[in-house]
């Protein structure tokens, strides 16, 4: 038992450490590299990894490590914004629907049913179809794609809390609905929101990178992990590093977020299971 515990915490410490490095890259890319992510070098086109270019260079001779470092800000920043908004929307809709119930709840949940009929990346693709390709639109897509599932989970948690005695007591002493929601419901569904946020954050990075990979998100020459992999597809026969190394950073980031998110879930609420 103790061995499993220790192994789990070693993995989470490694994951948390890696995330700290990635976040530092997003906050202060200049600390990690001196070069410009868009600086081309016609002499060093498609160069293999070396001491000067640890991740090699791409088809324009741009340093791939530098582009990975600058790509962190794009991926992490936009995903943070999208997750914050979808968590906010999902929480307010879910708490309101769960607390008041009735017609509003019914209408909202039937709407959520319809939106959930579009699996995976499909809802995001619909939004991009309407708004056109681009990173900002892709992030709106991520946000709209996540909010329905969030609101459903938060609604479920609210229903569980709504009939507890402390809510009844608060109402008994004459607290207004707004006060009950703010002081008694929200603090008790907070852990669900927190876990949803951490898992949703990884999903947001993945959807954003996927859209860019499909050519519908970040547009060249902006450094972005997903679009770097799209470019790499054309050079796999000769230059493996173009795709493999940036993808390794993206994969490790997603893996770390999932490991840390799992830990958060175990700590905050062992009974919560997310599909």
């Amino acid at each position: 038992m103790r061995r499993t515990y220790r192994r789990a915490s070693t993995a989470s410490i490694a994951a948390a450490g890696f995330l700290v490095v990635i976040i530092a890259m997003a906050v202060a890319p200049d600390v990690f590299t001196r070069s410009d992510p868009n600086q081309m070098d016609p002499v060093a086109v498609l160069g293999a990894p070396s001491t000067a270019h640890p991740f090699g260079t791409d088809e324009f001779g741009r340093d791939i490590l530098t582009r990975v470092v600058f790509g962190a800000r794009t991926s992490l920043g936009y995903a943070l914004l999208a997750t914050a908004i979808s968590v906010g929307l999902g929480t307010s809709a879910g708490v309101t629907a769960g607390f008041y119930g009735g017609r509003f709840d019914n209408a909202l949940m039937r709407g959520v049913d319809i939106l959930l009929a579009f699996p995976g990346i499909l809802l995001a693709l619909i939004v991009v179809t309407l708004l056109g390709p681009g990173l900002t639109n892709a992030m709106i897509a991520v946000r709209i794609g996540q909010a329905p599932a969030f609101s459903r989970v938060v609604r479920g948690a609210t229903l569980g809390v709504k009939n507890s005695q402390y809510v009844e007591a608060a109402r008994g002493v004459g607290a207004s609905a707004a006060r009950v929601i703010w002081r008694h419901i929200l603090p008790n569904v907070r852990h669900v929101v927190f876990v949803l946020g951490s898992l949703g954050y990884g999903a947001a990075i993945l959807i954003g990178a996927s859209l860019s990979f499909l050519g519908l998100g970040a547009q060249p020459p902006a450094p972005e992990w997903g679009s770097m992999l799209e470019t790499a597809r054309g050079y796999l026969q000769s230059s493996w590093w173009i795709g493999v190394l940036p993808g390794a950073v993206l994969g490790a980031t997603l893996l770390s977020i999932n490991v840390v998110g799992d830990l958060l879930r175990d700590v905050l609420d062992p009974s919560l299971r997310l599909e």
Binding site: L206, S210, F213, L229, A232, L236, W240, V244, L250, L255
Partner: peptide
């Protein structure tokens, strides 16, 4: 399981191409 759930398929796909095809 955790790796399979976490990694983006467009990267594992590229990895498989480099490894098993190229």
């Amino acid at each position: 399981a955790v790796v399979g759930i976490s990694l983006p398929s467009f990267w594992t796909g590229i990895l498989f191409i480099v490894l098993f095809a190229v």
